[in-house]
Design a protein around this nucleic acid. Structure first.
Length: 258
DNA sequence: GAGTATGTTATATG
DNA sequence: GCATATAACATACT
């Protein structure tokens, strides 16, 4: 479930529950997912540390410690769970036992990653991530997105351009802006790019406010229909599916205005 | 068995 | 350097 809104929702929950607590035990159960791969070193870097805050950049979640920072990426289907009584989950890959709660990073497909990093800024710049989708300003968005000779959807998905948009929300943003996912970014008029920037903020904000529960999204949102192959929520025509930038893309050809 | 999947990265090709 | 396409990663589900 993890694109920017899901990660932000998880971050808010963790922030409420975890800040101030001490990490008593840290268990990396999957070597492939632990960047660096040294379980003992990982544990010793975490155990005895206190969680002093949380942060997020794009789809990356950070637990800020009194020394160091734990980075978590949920991959394709990762999720975080809080328990009080030492429960376990089917695909647990990382277990943190704190003073009063157990945090489990569950990830069936094991595309997720976690590691201890120095701090958020250093990680983001080393990784070459673009600005966070909710922080990027209009000017910088125009500058980074416009001019790319690539499908607008592929540009939005590129974490080095803007961080946080995934396949589902890319479709939603473009649907709301009535822009063809295959439109070359470099050929999109400036006002439509500004519209895209604005829709991006709107869609992500709406998703976060709805707790990322698609059922609670506005009626004209594509995400409510996406899985069911139903009609366009705006015009009723059949939605169409295509591959753009290698990803399944759902759009309504009748609603486009370009 | 085939096809698909909310992500990222490496590799090959033009 | 830029852009595109593809496979790979690992697992679950239809």
């Amino acid at each position: 479930m993890p694109e920017l809104p899901e990660v932000e929702t998880a971050r808010r929950q963790l922030h409420e529950e975890l800040v101030g607590q001490l990490i008593v035990k840290a268990d990396a159960l999957d070597l492939k997912m632990l960047v660096g791969g040294n379980t003992d070193e990982f544990s010793s870097r975490l155990e005895g540390r206190r969680i002093v805050g949380t942060d997020r950049h794009g789809k990356h979640l950070f637990l800020l410690l009194d020394h160091g920072t734990l980075r978590i990426h949920l991959g394709m289907n990762g999720s975080l769970h809080l328990f009080r009584c030492g429960e376990e989950t089917r695909h647990q890959r990382l277990v943190l036992d704190l003073d009063h709660v157990r945090v489990i990073f569950d990830n069936p497909r094991r595309f997720g990653r976690f590691q201890v990093v120095e701090n958020v800024m250093t990680f983001v710049s080393q990784k070459g991530l673009g600005p966070d989708a909710l922080s990027i300003g209009e000017e910088e968005f125009l500058h980074r997105v416009g001019g790319r000779r690539k499908a607008i959807k592929a540009v939005l998905l590129d974490q080095k351009v803007v961080a946080g948009i995934g396949n589902l929300y890319a479709d939603e943003v473009l649907f709301q802006e009535r822009l063809a996912p295959v439109a070359l970014a470099s050929r999109i008029p400036k006002d439509r790019l500004i519209g895209t920037w604005s829709r991006m903020r709107e869609v992500l904000g709406t998703a976060i406010n709805a707790g990322t529960d698609f059922e609670r999204f506005p009626d004209d949102y594509l995400l409510r229909q996406r899985d069911r192959g139903g009609p366009c929520p705006r015009c009723g025509h059949e939605l169409r599916s295509a591959k753009v930038g290698g990803r399944t893309t759902i759009y309504c050809p009748f609603c486009l205005s370009i």
